[in-house]
């Protein structure tokens, strides 16, 4: 554990808390892509099945349980409790265009052709692109609430901080995992456009609005 990894995890934690608080306090999930949330739940389920086979630490276990539990809680809030506020007309990204290539890629490019390893690889690739339905929704409606922007910023920062963690680990432990690194870089790059708008608009008190 190093400071970048911890900061990344905290950023990820913060993103989820912001999202749940937004939905709970406003009693609405308007502007949030249910499809992205479903992909995240699938990501964490596939990756953290090793909860039952591989003990790392109490921290690791608590975080994994938190990520799985909150991803399903979000889906419950969006598709059941506050279903009436879910903006499904604008949430139209075709997730099969992500799931199919990610599955094939996981079967071809992995560290080891075993069930758990392929699930892990699938989750890494899927996480990299899981935010696309959400970004697509923002671009379709042309705007996002400030709270949604803060959520996206925290979520995007998490993988960026992990990149610094990987650089750190490479120099201090000579450890690196190419699958995680390349997918993490792709994931971060997808947020670049959003980061730019976040710094130039949201932080200056303006609403995130895309030019027409």
């Amino acid at each position: 554990m190093n400071v970048f990894r911890l900061a990344g995890d905290m950023s990820h934690l913060l993103a989820i808390i912001i999202l749940l608080l937004k939905i709970w306090k406003t009693r609405s999930c308007a502007g949030i892509s249910g499809r992205s949330q479903l992909l995240f739940a699938l990501t964490y389920t596939a990756r953290y099945l090793d909860l039952v086979t591989n003990w790392v630490s109490l921290y690791n276990t608590v975080m994994k349980v938190f990520f799985i539990a909150t991803s399903y809680a979000t889906i419950y809030l969006m598709y059941l409790k506050f279903k009436a506020t879910y903006d499904s007309n604008h949430d139209t990204f075709r997730v099969e265009f992500l799931l199919l290539p990610v599955t094939i890629l996981a079967l071809v490019l992995n560290h080891e052709f075993s069930f758990m390893e392929i699930l892990w690889t699938f989750s890494i690739y899927l996480e990299a692109v899981a935010i696309l339905p959400q970004l697509f929704m923002v671009s379709k409606t042309g705007e996002a609430e400030s709270i949604t922007s803060h959520y996206l910023f925290a979520l995007g920062s998490y993988r960026l901080l992990y990149i610094f963690n990987w650089i750190w680990r490479y120099y201090t432990e000579e450890y690196y995992d190419l699958i995680a690194i390349i997918a993490g870089v792709v994931q971060t790059v997808l947020y670049c456009d959003f980061f730019y708008l976040y710094f130039t608009k949201v932080l200056k008190g303006k609403k995130l609005q895309l030019p027409a």
């Binding site: 995890d9 090793d50 690791n60 560290h111 892990w120 963690n165 000579e174 450890y175 690196y176």
Partner: peptide, 10 residues
């Protein structure tokens, strides 16, 4: 040679 993956990260 790439080191053995540890998957200790989240």
């Amino acid at each position: 040679e790439e080191p053995e993956p540890d998957h200790d990260e989240l």
